[in-house]
Design a binder for these strands. Structure first.
Lengths: 206, 206
DNA sequence: GCAAGGATCGACCGGACGGTCAGGTGTTCC
DNA sequence: GGAACACCTGACCGTCCGGTCGATCCTTGC
């Protein structure tokens, strides 16, 4: 009877892959809403209904969870957008495709997107940070290439390409600060509206 | 001789007001670069060359320092921009004034600006947060009023005013993520370039 | 010359954090 | 039936954090 308190096994065992997905999804939500430092391993465990120790069974440490989310979603964003660029379309329409696809990605993978977009401070593991930035740069260069092509095709005025790219990315990257999914336009719709405003300008025609 | 280790007084005493400014300035820099949670009271004390206890002599707690910075700079931003709107100018030029003034504020009070622009999570003291949001709203509504006036004056196309406002603010609020003060355009110059792109559009004229 | 009060310090506290450990269950495979 | 292994647990550890305390030093005013 001295062993009365033993009784382990509270959460029903899940297949490893499912558990890992659950952990990543709950972590992404927490990181996105309360930040890296504001999210403790205890919070994550509680949100998953498991013990803290189990997190360390599946992941080396907190930073590995974080890196999986941010690196993963940055890489995926690039691939997601790249795959959706309308082939053979006019350069200007490809820019619209870039923006709308980014809006779609944001809407689908909101928490991971927010976590990795706001990833900024904390560079605990330099190598991981570097790899993430590599994909981020690739994503940004993809847009710059589209802008450059549109200029050469005579569809855009000759302009400061990096700055124009930053203007477009700013509009998309800032969305998470005010976007409420339950009401108003969807994220791709917003991206499309931004496309119209940025490309045509706010001024009256002529 | 048992008192050998006493010897207090390491930092030369400063007039209270100067010390407070020093603390606020160092804190703003730290909050902006390493975040709220990533900045400890020990970090702040060390950056100021004083003991941790002294921080508590001047401020009630960590959150009071943070609130002073973020609330203060949000209120100041509104006032700063408001005072620089060109009176009597065409509505569209007043929008330019809004953007350039914001760029100037960013350049001058960079760390406080970044700290308060990225303030997001952590609402430890609800009242302070509310007051900050009030000034933030006032700032945003100022811009919306300018846009509305420009539409009514026939200088802007009829458009979704809140969305157009967000587009403009996004471009300014995202600047701190890539801006390097030592090279390239100054912040007001960037704001002006953004104004041109957003108002006239990226597309070739006609 | 001494009281008052602001500026400053080092030592300390309770609590939360990231992470470890030894072990308990349940399945699968020989 | 038992070895191997994946899944899971509570108890524990050292560290750092925000914050407190009592004392010392310095200036100012009487």
């Amino acid at each position: 009877m001295a062993r009365a308190a033993v009784k382990a096994q509270a959460a029903e065992p899940l297949d490893g892959a499912e558990r890992i997905l659950q952990i990543l999804s709950e972590s992404a939500r927490l990181f996105a809403t309360t930040g890296y430092d504001g999210t403790s391993m205890r919070d994550i465990a509680e949100a998953c209904g498991i013990s803290k120790s189990l997190l360390y069974h599946h992941f080396k440490d907190k930073d590995e969870i974080y890196a999986r989310i941010t690196l993963g979603s940055t890489r995926e964003l690039y691939q997601f957008v790249f795959d959706r660029l309308p082939e053979g379309a006019r350069p200007i329409e490809r820019i619209r495709g870039f923006m709308v696809a980014t809006g779609e990605y944001f809407q689908r993978y909101r928490w991971a997107w927010v976590a990795s977009t706001t990833a900024f401070w904390n560079d605990p593991e330099q190598r991981r940070q570097k790899e993430r930035m590599m994909w981020r740069d690739r994503y940004e260069n993809l847009l710059r290439g589209l802008i450059q092509a549109a200029i050469e095709a005579g569809e855009l005025r000759p302009l400061d390409v990096p700055l124009a790219g930053r203007l477009i990315l700013s509009s998309l990257n800032w969305m998470h600060r005010w976007y409420k999914p339950e009401k108003g336009m969807s994220a791709p719709q917003i991206a499309d509206a931004y496309f119209d405003m940025i490309l045509n300008g706010l001024k009256v025609e002529g």
